[in-house]
């Protein structure tokens, strides 16, 4: 299974995403923002970073890139797409997911191991989690405050489209403690925290078992591979 990872000018975590896909058992395929050829990949990851220097608004210019335009088209046909951090911002700017992301309420960049609850395990990227499973993966952002209108929030809650919710602490002022969302079909998932940084023992968050042993992020990528095999 081939999973594409788009690199925009200013992307930082494309290599980590590629490594996570490899560790999960997939084949990572590097994709370039200016190229509208998605190389027939089976899924796409929009990685974290600061695409186009966060100019205009985070993700706004990346949302208009040739590669993103193809992703939008294919996502509407069911292609699994995961947007991580800046990738989540690209997804909301592309209108594949509703709402917006603004500067953290406390105005500081934040970097911490973040506990989350997986509330929806029916998506292409979460099907290997238990419902309401608690996981810990790194979070690092300056503009991660999720906002939406009351009508949108109500719709997201009623349709079970909040995939991840922050536990114990709301790190950025996100409404309803929302950390991640999915679209109606469940193939597009976006979240602020970084699953690709918790995929290999020795390099992940600390757990009660051992220092840096957390690999809760691996299941995101394994879930996508499972979803692709079953489709």
């Amino acid at each position: 299974m081939r999973i594409g990872v788009i690199t925009y000018p200013g992307t930082l975590d494309d290599r980590d995403a590629e490594r996570a896909i490899r560790l999960a058992g997939g084949t990572p395929v590097p994709l370039w923002h200016a190229d509208d050829d998605l190389k027939k990949v089976d899924a796409v990851v929009l990685p974290g970073g600061f695409s186009y220097g966060d100019y205009l608004r985070c993700g706004a210019i990346a949302a208009k890139a040739p590669a993103t335009k193809e992703v939008i088209k294919k996502a509407q046909q069911g292609l699994p797409v995961l947007g991580i951090c800046n990738g989540f911002q690209v997804l909301v700017e592309s209108h594949l997911l509703p709402g917006g992301l603004i500067r953290n309420e406390h105005q500081h960049f934040i970097c911490r191991d973040q506990k989350l609850k997986v509330e929806n395990n029916q998506t292409a990227w979460t099907n290997l989690f238990e419902k309401d499973e608690e996981i810990t993966i790194p979070l690092k952002n300056g503009e991660g405050g999720y906002i939406a209108t009351q009508d949108t929030l109500k719709m997201l809650e009623e349709e079970n489209r909040v995939v991840f919710r922050y536990l114990e602490i709301n790190p950025n002022g996100s409404m309803n403690d929302i950390a991640g969302l999915t679209n109606e079909r469940g193939n597009v998932v976006g979240l602020m925290p970084h699953p690709e940084h918790a995929v290999e023992p020795g390099f992940g968050p600390d757990t009660p078992v051992a220092t840096r042993s957390g690999i809760d992020g691996l299941k995101f990528f394994q879930s996508a591979l499972k979803a692709l095999v079953n489709s």
């Binding site: 608004r57 700017e93 917006g100 939406a148 209108t149």
Partner: peptide, 8 residues
């Protein structure tokens, strides 16, 4: 459509 985001 592009220069502003009507959500925010």
């Amino acid at each position: 459509e592009f220069l502003s985001n009507d959500v925010i």
